[in-house]
């Protein structure tokens, strides 16, 4: 489950309206969400997300329960989101849609190399090592199945 990529550094309290705006929600075409992800925060961000690791400030994903926020990040190619804290619905949605999330305060510089392992909780940012709050065994199982749909099907 280890992931690597350049850091995209964001601020605190980024709400899910900013991740994907309400005006783009009503579609089944997931590429729409990937195209418009973070548009109201910074329209230049979306193309830089492919293969990236997002390192954000506290309370990432607050606000609306829209699962499209987690899906948009994953579809845009984000490999992991790291933040000191997450809003709980976004946190669950990310796990359920197979987007790794890790709770950890990691100072970062834009573009720095990040290596993260959700299973062990270790995060390396530009050579500095941090330890994230561990995910529960069930969350790890869901994540390693690729999301709740696949996890549920395997259990049947």
């Amino acid at each position: 489950m280890k992931v690597e990529g350049p850091a995209v550094c964001l601020g605190a309290d980024i709400d899910t309206d900013l991740v994907i705006a309400g005006r783009y929600l009503r579609t089944k075409d997931r590429s729409v969400w990937a195209t418009h992800v973070f548009e109201d925060l910074d329209p230049a961000l979306a193309p830089r997300l492919s293969g990236a690791i997002v390192i954000a400030g506290k309370n990432f994903g607050c606000g609306s329960s829209r699962e499209q926020a987690a899906i948009a990040l994953r579809e845009a190619g984000v490999r992991c989101v790291i933040a000191p804290s997450f809003a709980r619905i976004f946190f669950r949605n990310a796990i359920n849609t197979g987007l790794p999330v890790m709770e950890c305060a990691c100072p970062c510089t834009e573009g720095e190399r990040v290596a993260a392992d959700p299973a062990s909780g270790t995060i390396e940012v530009g050579g500095r090592v941090y330890l994230a709050r561990p995910l529960s065994p069930r969350m790890l199982e869901i994540l390693s199945a690729g999301g709740l749909v696949e996890y549920w099907r395997r259990k049947q």
Partner: peptide, 29 residues
Amino acid sequence: GADSHTCTLGAFGAFATGVGATDMAAIWA
């Protein structure tokens, strides 16, 4: 409820909380 403001129903002494869509599909099942 699959909506963040499901917490509104805590007014009635229910444990009421929001989840996302995939969580809800699993609850249906």
